[in-house]
Amino acid sequence: MNESDLILIIDDEIQIRRLLEISLASNGYRTIFASEGKDGVTVAATYNPSLIILDLGLPDIDGLDLLVNLREWFTKPIIVLTVRNSEDDIISALDKGANDYLTKPFRSGELLARIRTAIRLSMEKTDSQILEFGSLSIDLVSHIVRKNEEIIRLTTTEFSLLSLLARNQGRVLTHQFLLKEIWGYSYLEQTQYLRVFIAQLRKKIEDNPSKPELLITESGIGYRFGN
């Protein structure tokens, strides 16, 4: 990881900005700020940061509109900050190109983990054929999944779902996205498929299926492959 990554924070709360500055700086990141949406676009265009943290509740412009605006040309990760109980906002932010989200108040440790994941995913070209997660290994070419060296039999659907989540390790994938990618557009409302197959997968790959650590449920949003 490049330890001198530049992070742009677009947030109007001065206390939050100060807090983020300290915790990000102490973890080796450089930071720049914009307190309004319009400045945010200018600063992003001028400094080309490695990642943007975008607060959806800005004074001058709707955060979701700003996100769309940024995504027209900005290809690096964007993490959005929202208040709680706004699943609809989160889902539409993810649909509009946000890489990840955090609800306020959040823990700094959580934010740093998300930043690291987002930057890693944006740098990494998944050219590696085999993904390893502790005792689990997934061979993307030969479709062979091993747990503790033993081959696990997965159905085609199970494998597609697992590899899609695993390739985006650490990133939340929405229900709609997963349904569309694995089953196709006509299945967008059929979340029961997703629930059943996730439960099946957990039984096969988790150490303790009732306390999953690989296939994490993001309440009301989707699933995330654990770090």
Binding site: T191, R195, A199, T217, S219
Partner: peptide
């Protein structure tokens, strides 16, 4: 906040298929 949302009738349940195991696990976590 939740109470005031409930009182103002702003909370409506968006029903979706749920796995109770998932639900309990998220809470205990």
């Amino acid at each position: 906040l939740n109470m005031s949302r409930l009182e103002s009738g702003k909370i409506s349940a968006h029903l979706d298929w749920c796995d109770i195991n998932d639900l309990l696990n998220n809470v205990t976590k």
